[in-house]
Design a protein around this nucleic acid. Sequence first.
DNA 1: TCACACATGTAACACGTTACATGATTTG
DNA 2: CAAATCATGTAACGTGTTACATGTGTGA
Lengths: 195, 195
Amino acid sequence: MALRHAVLAALSLGEASGYELSKSFDVSVANFWSATSQQLYRELERLEEDGLLRGRVVEQQRRPNKRVFALTAAGHEELHAFIAQPARPTAIRDDLLVKLQAADDSDLDAVRDALGERLQHAQGKLALYDRLRDGLLGGRSEDAYLREAERVGPYLTLMGGRIYEQQTIRWCTAVLEALEQRARARTESLGLTGD
Amino acid sequence: MALRHAVLAALSLGEASGYELSKSFDVSVANFWSATSQQLYRELERLEEDGLLRGRVVEQQRRPNKRVFALTAAGHEELHAFIAQPARPTAIRDDLLVKLQAADDSDLDAVRDALGERLQHAQGKLALYDRLRDGLLGGRSEDAYLREAERVGPYLTLMGGRIYEQQTIRWCTAVLEALEQRARARTESLGLTGD
DNA sequence: TCACACATGTAACACGTTACATGATTTG
DNA sequence: CAAATCATGTAACGTGTTACATGTGTGA
């Protein structure tokens, strides 16, 4: 029951179609949960079967019809119950960390590449989050927004994502620097290592 | 092929039994990948079948025998290949963010509890990582360690975990404060919101 | 003596990924 | 005219979680 609640959370802000959800759950956009469109279509079916969502077909001109889903009362209840229930710690699982953990000196170039890619990706996401943030704030200050807005969740999760990407950028930069220093030190003392 | 490489990475530093691995892959200890012991035993079987590991039984007095696994040459090759291969962005999936995203004012207490728990957990992990760090450094400075140590991966992933927990602590604290300010503002202006 | 650490596993199920399929409309 | 966007799905497979099972030795 994991994606389930993420979908309910997304729909708690308003109805959406599977396709629309698949946009905001995309790995390179998501700020609180990610999933493929295939997962979403499957989960939406189940949620409707279980009575937590209701879908209706919206006919469109010049593009395919879509099915738009909205929470039912049961769906809202389920969400409140989920929020109240104790959470377990989140698992760390990151390919980049595995690579770094296992790398020896012969892997240095590959690891540097991987770190560079991650760095770029984090910078892109940070820029995206900043744009989303400006959109949410709409000219108001953060303080004013937090006082006045009806729902502060989306803003606070966005800030979570923002801090996460900032930290990723700092870490990648530091690790790249450490690896370069090490590489320099190694070439300067050729053959004198490992004694 | 995800856990697979994490296990190979862990064993690249030296042989270990399933039980020993299950300790370091525990959610509340892991700094680069987490998994349950059940997953590990299953994966170790497969890795041995595929010739990437070799296991041998170590007989012990006063406790059950254990099977200790070590990388084969093929295992090392597989690791190098994995490190060289391009990585895809990591998915964000966090129950706490889902809760925050979905929360309305009636959920505030539950969300505060969840944030408090996460905060405590992060503080515990940070303290643990600091102890592990001291152990790795063994009195040397970070600079010296990065120059002299044979493998810097474990230290750098540990620093990744450390930064991650520090950032979590900062974020939780900021969110808790924002929620409290909001709660105060709400009770002061009863009934005047929403216009 | 009761709980916890050590040590390994099976079985069933839930969740996530990848590949494939279809077809209209808009943009370059 | 090709590519991207809109829109929904099926099938097969790989990964992760939960519950259960077993038995010894150590410390409170």
